[in-house]
Every structure is written in structure tokens, then in C-alpha cells.
């Protein structure tokens, strides 16, 4: 927020206010030769000169509460002013509900400011009342569905006060609106992980949900990452779930060459090799072939990475052939 002091015609400086006559302002001591000097407006300097003066006196009064409002308006990132304001609220026994309204209005003006969200959180902790938090963060996410501060506050409120009941519907709406909203996918994981739980049934349902969304937009990193995340909770892993593996093969057969699909099949191959469960679809040769396709055609920007992954499979393949040879030799010896 910029300093709007200059255009404020009706503004009276604190030094010109009779009710502040008893206070001697304390100007900033920036040393004899400061650097990175900000040419603050007269209003800014005046407000902060008085803030320093009352801080020094440790004055706790209504007029100081008002002064902190002016100081915050000029610089909402000043954490000392916010902290002093909280101490004032406590000392004066101010109605915290009106403070909630106030901080909401500041959040609306500065939705990406750490200090305001922290202030909000402390107030909610004091009141032990989170009833307005879902709406507040919902509004902020309407403006910017990926606002990290809003998501952080929302997760905190939901987890602290157990507000999970309508969260899945909220998330579903956001994903429907923008299937690429990674924050919303993350929140979906958060809800299942903390509230619904990873029962077999839920795992299957979430797998189906992710697959539906991938069918809709195939080249969507968020949905693929979610699918992989859900499968962390499937005992059968990436390679053992036939619904998932055939879903991938169908996409592949239908000419989908999204790097996320190919990467996923490569990972299935990797797991199958480690488990010793090779098949015609999932084996080192297939993985190497897909790595080559990614490196040379479908994901050229990461060609060096795919070559590196390919090398790993080549080593695994050699090891396996080595093993088979030894096995054969062993068998011959037995004969």
C-alpha cells in the first residue's frame, strides 16, 4: 500500500492536534549518514513520530489505539505497530468483534500481507471463535484462488477448530472452476488426509476423481500429482492397481503423449522392476523407450533429465540380464 498522505486534504497532523499537545514527538534516529533512505511524506513522519513517543511512554489509551490505525494504514507491514495494537486491545478490554471487522477490511486491501493475517489469527485464538474464517478466506480466494496466505489461514482454522464438514464441496467447486488450480488439489489432499481418511473405499474414490479430471484435461500436472499422492496410500502401489494401469494404457493407446502420462508409466515400470513383477507393458525396455520419446520429442526441455533416468533403467536392465545369465549357468551346472 502506498502512502496516500499527500492527497488527504482534511488531514490534521498530530503535531497540530490540541488533544495531543501533552506529547513530545520522537523523530527517527537513522544515524548521521543513513543509506536506503525513504523520502516519507510529512504525514508518515508525523504519525510515526507520535507512535515512537507513545511507545516510549508505554501509553495505553483509546487515542493510541486510533494512532495505531493510522500507522498501520501508512504501512501495514509494520509488525511492531500490530503487536502494540494487540497489547492495547488487551489493556483496554476493547471489543474484539469490532477488531475482527477492522482487520477484515485491512485484509481486503492487503490480502498478501503476512502481518494482517497473523493479527487475524491471534484474534481468532483469543475469541476461540472461527465462525467467520471460512467466509473470509473464501472471499479472498474468490479474488485470487491461489493466495497462499488465505490457504494457510484456512487450513489453520479448519484443523484447529475441526471445520472439515463442508470443505470437500468448497474444494470441488474450485477444481470444477479451474481444474489446474494446484492449491485446490492440495486442499483436497488435506481434507482426505485429516478428515475422511485413506480407507480403501476413499482411495478408490479419489483415484476415480483424479482420473475423471485427467480425462477432461490430460496435460495437467496438478491432477497427475494428486493421483500419485493418493496412490501412496494404496498398498498395491503405482503398478498394482489395474484400474490405474489400464487407464494409463488406454490414454497411451489413444495417442496421449502428455509428459505427465509418460512419466507416470515410467514410474510404474520402475516399481514393477523393483518388485520383480515385469510384464509386457512394464519393463526396462518400455521405460527406456518412453524416456527416449520424452527426451527427443515430448519433453525436450528436460531431455538431460530423461536421459539420466534412461541410464538408470539401462543399468537395471544389465543387472537383470546378468542375473538371468547366472541363473542359466546355475541351471546348466545343476544338469
Amino acid at each position: 500500500m502506498s502512502d496516500s498522505g499527500d492527497s488527504d486534504i482534511a488531514w490534521t497532523l498530530y503535531k497540530d492536534r490540541p488533544e495531543w499537545k501533552d506529547i513530545t514527538p520522537v523523530s527517527e534516529d537513522d544515524g548521521p549518514n543513513p543509506v536506503v533512505v525513504i523520502a516519507h511524506s510529512e504525514k508518515f513522519e508525523d504519525v510515526y513520530d507520535y507512535f515512537r513517543a507513545v511507545l516510549k511512554k508505554n501509553e495505553k489509551s483509546e487515542r493510541v489505539l486510533q494512532l495505531t490505525k493510522d500507522a498501520v494504514e501508512l504501512n501495514p507491514a509494520n509488525y511492531t505497530v500490530w503487536q502494540y495494537r494487540r497489547d492495547l486491545l488487551k489493556a483496554l478490554g476493547t471489543d474484539l468483534r469490532s477488531e475482527l471487522d477492522y482487520v477484515e477490511s485491512v485484509i481486503k486491501q492487503s490480502p498478501k500481507n503476512y502481518q494482517v493475517w497473523h493479527h487475524r489469527r491471534v484474534l481468532v485464538e483469543w475469541l476461540q471463535d472461527p465462525t467467520l474464517e471460512l467466509e473470509l478466506t473464501g472471499d479472498a480466494l474468490l479474488q485470487d484462488p491461489k493466495n497462499y496466505h488465505a490457504w494457510q489461514h484456512r487450513q489453520w482454522a479448519i484443523k484447529t477448530f475441526g471445520l472439515f464438514s463442508k470443505e470437500m464441496a468448497f474444494v470441488d467447486n474450485l477444481i470444477t472452476e479451474d481444474v489446474r488450480n494446484n492449491s485446490a488439489w492440495n486442499q483436497r489432499y488435506f481434507v482426505v488426509n485429516n478428515h475422511l481418511g485413506w480407507s480403501d473405499l476413499n482411495v478408490q474414490r479419489e483415484i476415480c476423481y483424479a482420473m475423471e479430471k485427467i480425462k477432461f484435461v490430460k496435460n495437467n500436472e496438478s491432477a497427475w500429482n494428486y493421483l500419485r499422492g493418493v496412490l501412496l496410500h494404496d498398498k498395491r502401489g503405482l503398478s498394482g492397481n489395474a484400474v490405474v494401469t489400464s487407464f494409463c494404457e488406454d490414454l497411451y493407446k489413444n495417442k496421449c503423449r502428455s509428459p505427465y502420462l509418460l512419466a507416470f508409466i515410467i514410474d510404474i515400470c520402475d516399481e514393477a522392476i523393483k518388485k520383480g513383477e515385469l510384464s509386457c507393458f512394464h519393463n526396462p525396455d518400455r521405460a527406456i523407450e518412453l524416456c527416449t520419446a520424452l527426451a527427443t520429442k515430448y519433453d525436450k526441455i528436460r531431455s538431460k533429465y530423461w536421459n539420466y533416468i534412461s541410464e538408470k533403467f539401462k543399468i537395471a536392465k544389465n543387472e537383470q540380464e546378468e542375473k538371468e545369465k547366472q541363473q542359466e549357468n546355475g541351471d546348466k551346472m545343476d544338469d
Binding site: 543509506v35 508518515f44 507491514a77 509488525y79
Partner: peptide, 21 residues
């Protein structure tokens, strides 16, 4: 220029001048 003097539009960076330096 930033090491020297900054306009009042940067007042909201008042508490983090060291990072600008």
C-alpha cells in the same frame, strides 16, 4: 540509486530497508 534515496511510494518497505540494501 536504491542505496541512496527512495520515493515515498516505498513507505510500506519502511521496516525492511536492510533487505533493499
Amino acid at each position: 540509486r536504491f542505496l541512496n534515496i527512495l520515493p515515498s511510494s516505498l513507505s510500506s518497505h519502511d521496516t525492511t530497508r536492510v533487505t533493499i540494501a
